[in-house]
């Protein structure tokens, strides 16, 4: 499994970006194994535009859909540049949280685990 399913309508730009990053990361065996153990949902909100996408992890199956679902397991909000820094591995999610560069809600342990799917290893 290295495909990420699109749930619902055509994805917005944020969702397309997240989908492609996760698909790239799932080609790495170590990440694929870790993602395979995840179950839960992560809402990512881009701060400036207010655009949200939800990533659903279901023990190996991954889906992305537009907008925020109600009561996700975890929620993260950041500007595009901060999201880019996290996904490119330049900024660790814990450091970003402690520095106030991102906002997070929900289960922070799950958030940190799920965010591994978004960090490029290339």
């Amino acid at each position: 499994m290295s495909r990420v399913e699109i749930i619902g309508e055509e994805l917005n730009g944020l969702g397309m970006t997240l989908k492609q990053i996760i698909e790239t990361n799932l080609k790495v065996p170590d990440i694929k194994e870790k993602v395979g153990r995840l179950k839960g949902s992560l809402v990512v909100r881009e701060k400036q535009s207010g655009i949200s996408s939800t990533i659903i992890f279901d023990e190996g199956d991954v889906g992305v859909q537009n907008d925020a679902i109600e009561r996700p397991a975890a929620f993260i909000e950041a500007g595009f540049l901060e999201l880019a820094d996290i996904s490119s591995g330049r900024l660790g999610p814990v450091k970003a949280l402690l520095a106030g560069k991102i906002k997070a809600k929900g289960n922070l342990i799950k958030l940190l685990k799920m965010s591994q799917a978004l960090i490029s290893r290339g």
């Binding site: 970006t17 490119s88 490029s120």
Partner: peptide
Amino acid sequence: MTKIMLNAR
């Protein structure tokens, strides 16, 4: 898009 994220600035 990974290149876009890596070079967002």
